[in-house]
Amino acid sequence: MIENLLLVLFASAAVMGAVLMLVLRHPMRVALALIATMISLGGVYGLLGVHVIAVFQIMIYVGAVMVFMVYAIMLLDVRDPSFTDRYSALLWPGLAACTVLAGVLVGSAWQGAGPVAGATGGLFGVQPFSAVFLGRYWLYFELTSVLLVVAVLAAVAVVQIRGRRRAGPAADAEPALPAGAAAGQEGVRHG
């Protein structure tokens, strides 16, 4: 009973955060709304009993991705037209299209065959999860490490090319580069 209530609460919070994302003007506030959504989702995962995912949701998404995003927002505090005029020209067509889409998707979504009583706490704990992940799906684990290395290299390379081309005084560009590379490294450490 209380579980269901909490579930509805967290879910509603997630949706509200999403809506706030669309409405707020300052990018920083949008980021905070997104963080709120993510934390709520973490809560939902926890309530569902998928603990390992809940934890990693917070750690990776909120802790790394959103932190990096916040850094970027702080760095690029540009007061340009997108600040004052936050909606694009396609506000109403987009609104209409996505409403229809949401309606169609929700209306045709899977009509469930009733609740399934499942003791899932044990299944999604860290130990059984790891055993499966690093046991049966070890290849994909390795591949993800490769992916992350490549991502780091790519970020460095993208930034270095710009650095090499700009031989002379590069004004306010330079300080941005190390911060970006550092943020990338942060993401790696948490992943």
Partner: peptide
């Protein structure tokens, strides 16, 4: 599904 739709809407609608 709602979150997905709202995200897609935001992609179309927001400028930043």
């Amino acid at each position: 599904l709602l979150l997905f739709s709202i995200g897609l809407l935001g992609l179309i609608v927001r400028r930043n």
